[in-house]
Simulated scan of single mutants.
Amino acid sequence: MSKRILVVLSEFGYWGEELVGPVDALDAQGYRITFATPTGKRARALPPSLDADYIDPPLGRSVTTRDMARRARELDESSRLDNPLSLQDLIPERPYYSSLNHLRELEDYHRRLASGVGDLIAGFDALVIVGGSGPIVDLANNERLHEVVLAFAAADKPILAECYGVAVLAFARDLETRASLLWGKHVTGHPKEYDYKDGTGFIGVNFNMGPPPYPLEYILRDATGPDGAFHGNVGKETSVIVDFPYLTARSTPDSVPAGELLVQVLENGLRRYGW
């Protein structure tokens, strides 16, 4: 039976190549891909990611080839991204501790949560969180997505996160222990050197955040602890780390090898790569 992959996209903009890379590798294997967004709104690519002439400020060069810009635009404009699943519909919202009937509401929450994540775990073999600046807004601290990540990790199913999507792994925590899922793990992600000083942008809002609101590298260094590590691999063309069940990709050019490595994890049992 063909494997099924759940791909989560931000509604505030994903980076084109960071979707194309995994999708191409998964399509080549004949895997079935289902897309999801936080509220079921159709995702769109960040305009700079479709422009081969756009100069990435930290790197001082274009990071998108003309061929990749074309492929990303074709995928972004295709019907494949229409009608994504809604995490809001699938996963309940944890009640506030200050709610009047908190105990009963929390019991109901756990009943509905078990059903929602149980269906996802039964239906999918892997989870992919696509990067770009959009995830900063609606994925990084999305408690519904955190519950999905926790469930995939508990089921020992692979989770690929790219760029600022890696923040989801750092923030997805069991609220009983508050311990990081990445403690003792090796990961990569957007390093400090790759962060914009100005111009971090999003789709759907007329707002220039300036630099990112948090340096992902610092968060990942803290989250992995003394027995794990963050690997920025600055100065190397690509950076992808596999420390099962997590696969982490640093930025745009890492999306193609990340997709290929996810296939290796699913087909050949790869559990460690990149350090």
Rank of each mutant, 00 (worst) to 15 (best):
I203H: 07
Y196D: 05
L247F: 03
V240E: 03
N233M: 11
Y196C: 04
P211R: 15
A229S: 13
N206K: 14
E193G: 06
L247V: 12
P245Q: 11
Y196F: 14
F207H: 11
P212G: 10
G225E: 01
P245T: 12
N233T: 01
P253S: 12
T200Q: 12
I219T: 11
G235V: 04
F244W: 03
P211W: 11
F202I: 07
G228R: 09
P211V: 14
G225K: 01
G201T: 08
D195A: 13
V242N: 01
E237W: 09
Y246E: 02
N206F: 13
D254A: 05
E237D: 13
Y194R: 07
D227V: 11
S251G: 08
D198E: 10
G232C: 12
R250H: 02
R250E: 00
Y218M: 12
D198Y: 06
R221A: 11
V234H: 04
T200E: 10
G210K: 10
R221D: 06
F244R: 04
D222M: 12
V242S: 06
Y214P: 00
F230M: 05
G210W: 10
P215I: 12
S239D: 06
N206E: 13
E217Y: 07
V234R: 05
T248V: 05
P253Q: 10
P212V: 11
P245N: 08
K197L: 15
D227N: 14
A223N: 05
V205S: 05
P215D: 14
P212N: 09
T252D: 04
G232W: 05
T238P: 01
M209T: 04
N233V: 02
P215L: 15
K236F: 14
P253K: 11
F202P: 04
G210N: 10
R250Q: 02
N233P: 00
N233G: 07
L220K: 02
G210P: 04
N206V: 14
T200W: 08
I241N: 01
P226E: 10
I219A: 13
K192C: 00
